[in-house]
Design a protein around this nucleic acid. Structure first.
Length: 726
RNA sequence: GCCGAUGUAGCUCAAUGGUAGAGCACGGCUUUCGUAAAGCCGAGGUUGUGGGUUCGACUCCCACCAUCGGCUCCA
């Protein structure tokens, strides 16, 4: 016997082997009709699951339950897969999970699916749903299941089965068992029948790799969404439409903030005046913070010798995402290829391609011929030799990051422990040749400016420095009200070979960063494998309007570059010590940060950041002169102004300014002219009434100085519209 | 880089292989108006670029460029 405990506290005794549905039916036939699954001791299971053991907590899950949605979506994925298989029988299924707001199914199919096929697939799905076929679960022992899957010749499913845990594997038939209906290896659970699937829609098809590995098979990933009701689906689709309206690419064009031009290059931002002023204002804000926190501004070039980046390890480690180096001569270019070949060989013996290239070079270059190639020497020796030939004609790299330059500034003088921490800050523009499929908007670009700084400190200072950087990011994000972010601590994956430096230093860095993050009191997640290649990091991650996550601010601890560049300071013991570096950029890049900011505000920037802060609109020709006076006075007062004295009606002028998201419109008519006031209207459509120009300027100044903590409510505290004489 | 889609006036979108069109924006004129769109007229295009098929291509085919959605990558 099993004692079944219900959510209301009631207990019912049942025979072993009773199903969840049996119990629910006993509670009430209405509930049984509404139920799509059950929760047994917190685990979601099929309604047909049997109850065993001494006692169990049971809860019915109805379609209205939030837990029902993923379940139903997964069932919908099965129906979609069946539909695709029936239309293209050669389809081989791979993997079909539930994701946020929907599901997808990876398939291997020679016919490339396109949106034109969606209608057909959806029609077939609708038919399957209408057939009201039960999802029937059955289990096979692992060996039986494997034998069967192998005989079906679908390597993906065999792989899935191999990865599944447990002694037996479950299958789901969309229909009665042995009915010949479509079935799939699946852990479940599912809704009771296809008729319980609500409103669905196939959204898109995209490429994907098996196991996410670019060297593996290319698959097609078909995305769908499913909701309990048609109304919910429509609400979701509407939500997507609304999100699109906030898209920074759209708003950026509409408000004239920035542009891209194929002639300039993909992923290279042209900041137009109205966008540039946002960036300029943010940079001014950051500069103030930097000085207050003891940073020293520096300027360094946007280009550097290739040798610099060989030393830092960035070249050729990140070669594929760098713009190609600039070489003065073909010889230098070829010698660099030779260097890369030797580097890649990483062996004590030159590889044939290496020797072949050298021999070819030696034909036309006597000095090389004389010197000969040290083919039998260790790779470091060969690299050094090639480096010596390259020294006089080294190539240059458009800088992919700022740290090497800042390191060289650190190295330009002898440092004492009394000087530390040294904090060097620069809005450093860097160039990275991002993969073509990745470039888009302001969030992923090929040239961008980091609000970068590098801190060189002693081990004793490290904790406080990291904590200070965390605080900078917190304050920076807070000042623009960007509080919906998550904090990720990226740690090293010890099984990967992608890291430089010693295990000991990694351990020190990871401990330091975790201690500082814990001390900050911020919630965070630890993610193994998300470290930078030279050290662990803390990232501040936000989502854009269509749900994609972007890393903004970052704090990275680095023991490795100081080693590579042999950095030192003189300690109080008069001996040389190695400083530790902290890389930090609280906003990440100005481009990405502003992109996210545009979406965060939907283009309606707070007054201090607004490209145009106030537009002066004349009611008619009679007040145009006074409107211009007001405009000039405001501009003299430091506000970013526009005026509109065109012969349109006042409504049209207000509409234009409002659509450009200008925070305040000053309506200037004959009344204002005679009273020497301004009439204030917000972009939200509120009429704040009239006040004098000095009053308005003072209110704006206060709103700007406090970054919006005092608001428009302070402005126009003269007569309210209702009290005004008209 | 990979898979798929898209590319027509500044913007948003039309146009069976048969003379490229609309709204908004823009320019001119009329109008001088009180809180989200006054009226009339006008200009605006080698249909992303380059090839091909065809008597004829915005339309069909190929390549490249760019954009969009994913995958992979992200110092």
């Amino acid at each position: 016997m099993v004692m079944v405990r219900l959510p209301d506290g009631n207990e019912i005794e049942h025979c072993d082997g009773v199903t969840a549905l049996d119990v629910i039916r006993e509670i009430g036939p209405g509930l049984a009709r509404a139920a799509v699954a059950a929760k047994l001791d917190g685990n979601v299971v099929d309604l047909t699951a049997t109850l065993n053991g001494d006692s169990v907590n049971l809860q019915a899950i109805t379609a209205a339950d939030p837990a029902a949605l993923p379940l139903m979506r997964h069932s919908c994925a099965h129906v979609m897969a069946e539909a695709i298989c029936s239309l293209w029988p050669q389809t081989r299924l791979v993997y079909g999970p539930t994701v946020e707001d929907g599901f997808y199914y990876d398939i291997d199919l020679d016919h490339g699916l396109s949106p034109a096929d969606f209608e057909q697939i959806e029609a077939r799905m609708t038919q399957i749903v209408k057939e009201d076929r039960p999802f029937t679960r059955y289990e096979l022992s692992r060996s039986e299941a494997m034998t069967r899957l192998e005989s079906e010749g679908n390597p993906y499913k065999v792989d899935n089965a191999e990865r599944a845990e447990g002694d037996s594997l479950s299958f789901y038939v969309t229909g009665a068992r042995d009915s010949g209906c479509w079935e799939d290896l699946c852990r479940g659970p599912h809704v009771p029948s296809t008729a319980r699937i609500g409103a669905f829609k196939i959204m898109r098809v995209a490429g994907a790799y098996w196991h996410g590995d670019a060297s593996k098979a290319k698959l097609q990933r078909v995305y769908g969404t499913a909701w309990a009701t048609k109304k919910d689906l429509n609400r979701y689709l509407h939500r997507l439409e609304e999100a699109k309206k906030r898209d920074h690419r759209k708003i950026g064009r509409e408000l004239g903030l920035f542009a891209f031009d194929p002639l300039v290059g993909s992923g290279l931002v042209l900041w137009k005046p109205r966008g540039a002023v946002i960036r300029y204002t943010l940079e001014q804000f950051i500069r103030g913070e930097l000085l207050r926190r003891g940073y020293q501004p520096v300027y360094t070039p946007q280009i550097g010798r290739l040798e610099l980046y060989r030393k830092s390890g960035h070249f050729p480690y990140y070669k594929d995402s760098q713009y190609p180096p600039l070489f003065e001569s073909d010889r230098a270019r070829e010698l660099n290829v030779l260097w890369e070949l030797a580097w890649a060989s990483n062996s004590d013996q030159a590889v044939p391609a290496e020797i072949e290239l050298f021999d070819r070079l030696a034909v036309s270059h006597e000095d090389l011929r004389k010197a000969g190639y040290p083919a039998g020497e260790a790779v470091d020796a060969r690299l050094k030799r090639i480096g010596s030939w390259l020294a006089q004609e080294d190539g240059y790299l458009l800088r992919p990051m700022n740290c090497p330059h800042h390191i060289q500034i650190y190295k330009s003088e002898r440092r004492s422990y009394r000087d530390l921490p040294v904090r060097l800050a620069e809005f450093g523009t860097v160039y990275r040749y991002e993969q073509s499929g990745e470039v888009g908007g302001l969030t992923r670009v090929r040239g961008f400016t980091q609000d970068d700084a590098h801190i060189f400190c002693t081990p004793e200072q490290l904790h406080d420095e990291i904590a200070g950087c965390m605080d900078e990011a917190r304050v920076g994000l807070g000042v623009v009200g960007l509080n919906d972010y998550r904090v990720r601590v990226g740690l090293r994956d010890e099984t990967s070979s992608k890291w430089v430096g010693t295990a000991k230093n990694w351990e020190l860095a990871q401990v330091a960063i975790l201690e500082a993050v814990r001390a900050s009191g911020m919630a965070y997640t630890e993610e193994v494998g998300e470290a930078a290649f030279y050290g662990p990091k803390v990232d501040f991650i936000v989502k854009d309007c269509i749900g994609r996550e972007w890393q903004l601010g970052t704090v990275q601890v680095d023991y490795n570059l100081p080693e590579r560049f042999e950095l030192s300071y003189v300690g109080d013991d008069n001996a040389a010590h190695r400083p530790i570096m902290v890389h930090r950029a609280p906003f990440g890049s100005m481009e990405r940060f502003i992109g996210i900011l545009i979406e965060h505000f939907a283009g309606a920037f707070p007054l201090w950041l607004s490209p145009i802060q106030v537009t002066v609109c004349s009611v008619s020709e009679k007040s145009a002169g006074y409107a211009l006076e007001v405009y000039k006075a405001c501009r003299d007062g430091g506000l970013r102004m526009e005026y509109d004295t065109s012969d349109d009606r006042i409504g049209a002028k207000i509409r234009r300014a409002t659509m450009m998201k200008v925070p305040y419109v000053l309506v200037i008519g004959e009344q204002e002219m005679s009273a020497q006031t301004v009439n204030v209207r917000t972009r939200e459509g509120k009429q704040l009434g009239s006040c004098t120009l000095p009053e308005f300027l003072a209110a704006c100044a206060a709103e700007i100085a406090t970054h919006g903590e005092t608001t428009s409510a302070e402005i126009g505290r003269g007569s309210a519209p209702s009290e005004r004489q008209v």
